[in-house]
Amino acid sequence: MLNFKEVLGFHFVNNRMEELVSEVHSRINHAQKTFIVTANPEIITYAQANPYYEKILKSSNYIIPDGVGIILASKILGQHLQERLTGFDLMSRLLEISNKKNYKIYLLGTKPDIIDMTASNIKKTFPHIEIAGFHHGYFHNDQEIINEIKLSEPDIIFVGLGFPKQEKWISDNLHHFNKGLFIGIGGCLNIWAGVNKRAPKFMRDLNLEWLYRLIKEPTRSKRMLAIPIFLKRVFRQNLNKKEERTEIK
């Protein structure tokens, strides 16, 4: 059973990766439909300004803290989350399990000339995985994708359309399917394709993965503006909590 802690109104999974993987694996094994959000400060900040998107996040089965900013916020607000649970690490663990259990996966997202490489590299790394299908993210007809997924009946659907599109797509279409674990994994498909690289381990250990991505993708600078807004709201909420405690005394 997973535990949760509230950070800025969102209930985050408060467990180690092994516990999360065990819970998710059980749901896959029992064909339980599941929606996982991998949330960082940018996603939470966007959700706070967009009620519809906020509702989507809160309707998911699990929100995991993918972003050092979420962990920092939890500490400041006295809701210390156990560890950062990245979408890439969770995806990797799910691929390992699929390789052993012969689960079928479906890949949705990235560019037409990249998704093929993603599928090929995953198959090379995990030869026993059954890739039920894949499709690039530049589509206009949802029904074509829905029909393909329904026909192939994958156990796990990795959706890499970038936020907020990937979460909206999952939320809007989840009712069409009888089973499947749906997870928004952002740019992970590009990493598996070899187009982008993860930050070196020492930078990940120092919680500087965001800096590495900014250096490699300068166009992300506008999105990074969400971080100071996020932290400002965290400190404001913390101050309000302190003032409320003072008034009670």
Rank of each mutant, 00 (worst) to 15 (best):
A49I: 05
G69E: 01
K55Q: 12
Q82C: 10
G69V: 03
F35R: 05
A49Y: 10
P41Q: 04
G87K: 06
G67H: 07
S59H: 07
S98Q: 02
Y46P: 02
N61G: 02
L57S: 01
R84I: 12
S74F: 11
A39C: 14
G67V: 05
E42R: 06
S59Q: 11
V37R: 10
D89E: 15
R84C: 14
E54T: 04
I97F: 00
K100A: 07
S92G: 00
I43C: 03
Q79M: 13
G78S: 10
E96K: 08
L90M: 14
D89F: 12
N99K: 03
I70F: 11
G69T: 02
R93A: 12
Y62A: 05
A73R: 05
L57D: 02
Y62K: 03
V37G: 08
S74I: 05
L72S: 04
E54L: 05
Y52E: 14
T38K: 02
L95V: 02
D89M: 11
I70A: 09
I70N: 11
N40Q: 06
A73S: 13
I70D: 11
G69M: 04
G78F: 11
I63N: 07
T38I: 14
A73L: 10
I63F: 07
N40A: 01
T45Y: 06
L95G: 00
D89L: 11
E54H: 05
Y52K: 09
L72H: 09
Q82M: 14
Q79T: 14
I64R: 14
S92E: 13
N40T: 03
F88R: 00
S60C: 02
V68K: 08
E54V: 00
I44D: 07
H80A: 15
Q79A: 15
E54P: 00
A49V: 03
L77A: 10
Y53V: 03
E54I: 01
S60K: 02
D89V: 09
P41A: 04
Y53N: 01
K100M: 04
F88A: 08
K58R: 15
L77S: 09
I97A: 02
L81C: 10
K58L: 01
S92Y: 11
L77Q: 07
E83Q: 15
T38W: 05
R84Q: 14
Q48T: 12
E54N: 10
L90A: 08
T38Q: 06
G67P: 10
E96A: 11
R93D: 13
A73D: 03
A39N: 05
P51C: 07
A73G: 06
K55R: 12
V37K: 10
N50H: 15
I71A: 11
